[in-house]
Design a protein around this nucleic acid. Structure first.
Lengths: 342, 342
DNA sequence: CTGAAAGCGCTTACAG
DNA sequence: CTGAAAGCGCTTACAG
């Protein structure tokens, strides 16, 4: 099957390849009549320019890379949803936002970030919950490829973050006002010294928790904190039981590590015979769509993944179009959603 | 910043571009010494071939397109997970499986399928829950681009399906054996005459439901069936209330439209004052990870999205490598997971 | 085992 | 407003 090319279209339309190309690229100086005719012929012959040739010719893929550790995650899906919706509304890059996953592997991540950059796989990159080296971010800058970070903040990159500190503060404050005394925190790893493992969001949330305790005069105790690495239901179970084994008997837990860990905490608490929320208040962080349907329904800090996504989209597009003179840092406001678990 | 190219690598290594290219493409006839040297230089200079140039040169994108209506869906995420895991294990196409969404829009879908084909955006396509025209599938065949359908089955394409008929049969049978008499079905749209709206999976599930009723001598009544179009919690609520308004008072509902609709059904049933499972047994279809944590925990037909995904991956890769002499149709066995809702 | 050369299908700076 | 021509960076069939 002979593929139809720009040359064929040019021949059929009786014009040069240049003219056809200009029509495809919306050059302004083509008379409406010529333009119409060429478009009509393209349509009639089912002609679509060979995309790889276009990108080759332009010197780079005109795609937006979306890099995260796991595509098939609740969180990622939500963010992608916001990005997609926005792309659809704007009519730009609708099918050119390409997700890549680094799978929690330092090696894969480094390779991937280099490859996107040096193999010119994208004109802009959104990174979700990644800890790239500052060095590679600088390389992207040098190459003129803008970067938007989600759940992180660095030099030479734009960012979109939830106001994590505030979210954790609100939740902790709520527990305090409910009269809870032994308020535990389950949280991602927040020690920036081990840079590749740490989470910027976790650091902020832990700070919010601490601030609230301090503000209300409760003492801060490291033993009241457990670290989550996987953010799973199982991990939530395990970490709650650690509090119990330490003899802490929490009457409140803020699962800053997310709704899934909160599900695990509730599960474990039930096994210990604790009544929720009477004996133990549990608060999650996310407000995934099923949070309202859990048993009991989950009180949680809502972070709008949709908002995160569409802001990231708007930022990267503006940056790619050269409309941003300085690095932008967007903060999404969280909301405490009160249900039956606390 | 001058980009480094194959020419530079060749010059530095003291060989021709051909040789460098052959190393990159694993040609067998390069002596180990030369090979090593060139790879070392590539590494040292952070050289990654310009991907668009490679694809241009090869005449097509070497990518696998994954097409569905919504990327940010529970179902999609699960399937993608299976695909990703498999790609990682096989070490092939790890970062070259590109999701595209058609957003439940006929126009977008048609455009997308044409563009992938004619703009040569992929060497293979996986389509999840899509109803492409037979004509475009034939065009893919002509172009030598294999297609794997998930949740559908057509001429000139491979397929991966859950044994939906069996899954629905098992669930219905279970309800019957529990002594349920007024067993309702909520199901996707299954009338193939309106081809673009219909769902192959829904058709099969409805058939399984019908078969079970027949086998156990219960009468089949169209009024006991409601059609889901969005597969959401809200829709489940709405559809259950329709049964009630029709005066049917179901004592069993099979939500062949998925776990989300089952959540809605349980919600609505509670509002009607029905006790689950005493007054009403509810069975879902999916077994999403949170099904066990609902209130009550959901009895449901598990379909392993992971298995679907990895089988689809294996098929498309085998097809792209020309290893399949005939069209393959894989059936994944479902499993009835019994919990507290039925 | 190695390299020279043609070719892939676009874009774009430039001349007219 | 239009077109000829150069060029983008690879791959591959072929000759040696």
């Amino acid at each position: 099957m002979k593929k139809i090319t720009i040359k064929d279209i040019a021949r059929i339309a009786g014009v040069s390849k240049s003219t056809v190309s200009k029509v495809m690229n919306n050059y302004p100086d083509i008379p409406e009549k010529t333009r119409k005719k060429i478009l009509e012929i393209m349509k009639r012959y089912n002609y679509y320019p060979f995309e790889s040739a276009q990108m080759f010719s332009k010197g780079r893929s005109t795609t937006i890379a979306f890099v995260t550790h796991r595509i098939a995650a609740q969180f990622t899906a939500g963010v992608l949803w916001g990005i997609e919706e926005r792309a659809l509304r704007k009519g730009k890059y609708i099918h050119d936002i390409i997700p890549y996953s680094a799978r929690y592997d330092l090696q894969i991540k480094n390779e991937l970030l280099k490859k996107i950059l040096y193999a010119r796989k994208a004109s802009g990159v959104i990174m979700l919950a990644m800890n790239p080296d500052q060095k590679i971010i600088n390389e992207y800058k040098k190459a003129g490829i803008p970067v938007v970070l989600i759940e992180n903040k660095m030099k030479n990159a734009h960012s979109v973050n939830v106001n994590n500190r505030k979210g954790a503060y609100m939740a902790t404050e709520y527990l305090i006002k409910k009269g809870r005394k032994r308020i535990c925190l389950i949280c991602g790893f927040y020690d920036k010294k081990r840079y590749y493992e740490y989470s910027y969001a976790a650091l902020e949330r832990k700070a919010g928790y601490e601030e609230a305790l301090k503000h209300y005069g409760l003492k801060y105790d490291e033993r009241y904190i457990e670290i989550a690495y996987n953010y799973t239901i199982e991990e939530g179970k395990e970490l709650f039981s650690r509090f119990m084994k330490k003899g802490i008997n929490p009457d409140g837990v803020l699962c800053a590590s997310g709704d899934l860990t909160a599900m695990g905490v509730m599960d474990s608490a039930k096994e210990y015979g604790l009544k929720i929320p009477d004996d133990l208040s549990v608060i999650g962080f996310d407000d995934y769509f099923f949070a309202a349907y859990l048993n009991p329904s989950l009180t949680t800090v809502r972070q709008s993944l949709y908002d995160i996504g569409y802001n990231a989209y708007d930022l990267i597009v503006a940056a790619m179009e050269g409309k941003l003179k300085s690095y932008q840092h967007i903060l999404i406001e969280p909301e405490l959603i009160i249900r039956n678990s606390a």
